[in-house]
Design a protein around this nucleic acid. Structure first.
Lengths: 349, 349
DNA sequence: CAACCACGAAAAATCGATTTACTCACATCG
DNA sequence: CGATGTGAGTAAATCGATTTTTCGTGGTTG
């Protein structure tokens, strides 16, 4: 093993070359695994590499290529399990192909999203995995198009005319939720969501509504949608219940909505599933340990990440053809927070 | 605004130079804000920059410096709120200083930790924020020392003889938890934790034990520690209760432990705080919306991130002196999961 | 008026790789 | 026997910046 002391300049390809008594070009070839090198010389190079503890400087190595071996990933946030797992997966997949993943959080802001994208463009990343704040029609995707960047859109998207997209099959999952709730006798259901993410939320809402109505035409489905933020949703939800509305089940179209719903239930002293049932889109580890355990739609993070990277590298490798929109199937975990409608006893509000 | 079409090669500093009728060196100076440039020429450069939409290539720019303007961050995982927030903060702080943050997950493996570190060394990062899997004495920190890297250690560390450290003041927080539990009459308390992270866990445990014993000398404190993983802990906990042990409160020294405790309570049909009380180290958003809300020690993520970056950049800037070990104060949020000991009625197990 | 200095800018070296173009030696072929 | 080909390797160009060195021009000064 190389005995190397601290502080010292790292050896460059030239150091290796002179140690091995060959040119830098030869060293480069050996490192790249080119076969047109005399075995004896190759061995000398390998020995020198070992002796000096030489490792290629990826920065310098990337300089000469048009596309650097860097993948950018932009997520709306890092604080939820979903995006945390996503980043973990993406990192691992990028690494497997010898790429470095640079992750950035847009912190739910489209302005920041574009800024980050500019910076990634400066880095000449080979590709970008973008989970847009809003949807596929935002300024970030436009920027990518305008600058000829290669990328994949994930999560809050349905399909795009320029980029491959990968997301959870929201509509089907919602349909299954609808079947479950209707099956348990629920005839008055509240759906909460965020208007901003138009397409995805609409898919989830419509998937639910269509299926529920197909099963029971006169089912009552109320909708509380906040535009951009979660706090307004909390207020709207409070107003909704304050009016005396008393659905027997709530279906939240996104994680924060589930939290808001739960906290509103708390405020009113309602318990699941006796007072009201609850299902949320997006699973989290805590949901199976609380009392009651919270029913949830589980998004297939690994599949989304895997197919996103697959699509991305196909494009990086020069793959042509029209963009592909993938939908990955979700799993619906019905837990104790959902009960039969008859349980829900109207209570004085 | 620059009207630039896709596909086209990005302009280099030479393109700007020839457009402005000056040399590349002059353009470089203007971009760097050097004042020894004739105002007229500076303006011509700025115009050319604007016209061509020129932006510095950070990769090429970093080539000539020994330390690149990149900060590496290595976290044990990205899936928890704590590390998610940490990365978000670190990213934002690095960005503020014109650095790019490259984050990587060691996935709770010391081997991977070292691998990532090697890769970051290849990138010649200016500094590293390392949240070690185990503690400050692992192979990763040793690698950093051996290679003269600059870095800061955070979270699962107490102090180090080579690097600055920043972590939550586990001992004080635990002492406060002890005061609270003792104050509520608890005299038989179970503490659960992970043995692997020796120093941190011990600080939390001892901080708790010392204070509790100081208040009530004959308080009974049981300890269930798993070595490396969470699943064994689940089994150990099950065994512990199966033996008929019936503490009135549980203090979990880390987040996953809290989840495991809750799920074990569920299995046995125990409710907080009537059957048993629960406090956990590490807060999470869901803890305030479940019923009961779970009491928790809140780690000051922003302070930890802030001081870590401060220390790191001080060292990058050449700051000398012995390493500093910082402890950031935590907040203890007593929620409904903690009740007075008299509530806990022994139940048949 | 010659020597000197200051200023601004250009030319050239540099960072650490990769890649192209070229050289040399030796073998093969018409 | 001269021409062509091929294997192995090297020098030099290149990527896109920064930094050091050099140069020319004017203005000051002894």
């Amino acid at each position: 093993m190389a005995h190397r002391q601290a502080q010292q300049r790292r050896p460059s390809i030239h150091d290796v070359a002179s140690r091995a008594g060959v040119s830098a070009a030869t060293v480069s070839k050996v490192m790249a695994g080119v076969t047109t090198v005399k075995p004896e010389n190759a061995q000398r190079v390998l020995d020198a590499v070992e002796l000096l503890g030489y490792r290629i400087d990826p920065l310098a190595s990337d300089m000469r290529r048009a596309k650097r071996r860097i993948i950018g990933a932009i997520m709306p946030e890092f604080e939820s399990e979903f995006f945390g797992q996503m980043i973990t997966q993406l990192e691992s997949l990028a690494e497997q192909r010898g790429y470095t993943l640079v992750a950035a959080s847009s912190r739910e802001s489209e302005a920041r999203e574009k800024e980050i994208l500019s910076r990634m463009h400066d880095w000449r990343v080979a590709g970008v995995v973008l989970a847009p704040v809003r949807n596929e029609h935002g300024p970030a995707a436009a920027f990518m198009k305008a600058n000829g960047m290669t990328g994949v859109l994930i999560d809050r998207v349905l399909s795009d005319d320029a980029f491959d997209t990968v997301s959870a099959d929201s509509a089907s999952a919602s349909a299954e939720v609808a079947r479950e709730l209707i099956g348990k006798g629920h005839r008055h259901i509240l759906v909460v969501g965020l208007g901003e993410q138009a397409a995805t939320m609409r898919a989830r809402l419509e998937g639910f509504r269509a299926t529920a109505r197909a099963l029971v035409p006169d089912v009552r489905i109320d909708v509380v949608l906040a535009e951009t933020d979660v706090e307004p949703l909390r207020a709207q939800l409070r107003d909704y219940f304050a009016k005396g509305e008393r659905p027997t089940a709530v279906y939240s179209l996104f994680l924060k909505g589930t939290l808001v719903a739960l906290s509103e239930f708390r405020r009113r002293g309602w318990h699941c599933p006796n007072d009201i049932s609850l299902v949320g889109f997006d699973d989290a580890e805590w949901m199976q340990v609380t009392w009651p355990a919270i029913a949830a739609v589980v998004q297939p993070v690994r599949q989304i990440a895997g197919h996103a990277m697959e699509a991305l590298f196909a494009r990086i490798g020069g793959g042509e053809g029209p963009p592909i929109a993938r939908l990955e199937p979700c799993k619906v975990l019905m837990r104790e927070s959902v009960g039969s409608a008859s349980l829900s006893q109207p209570k004085p509000t």
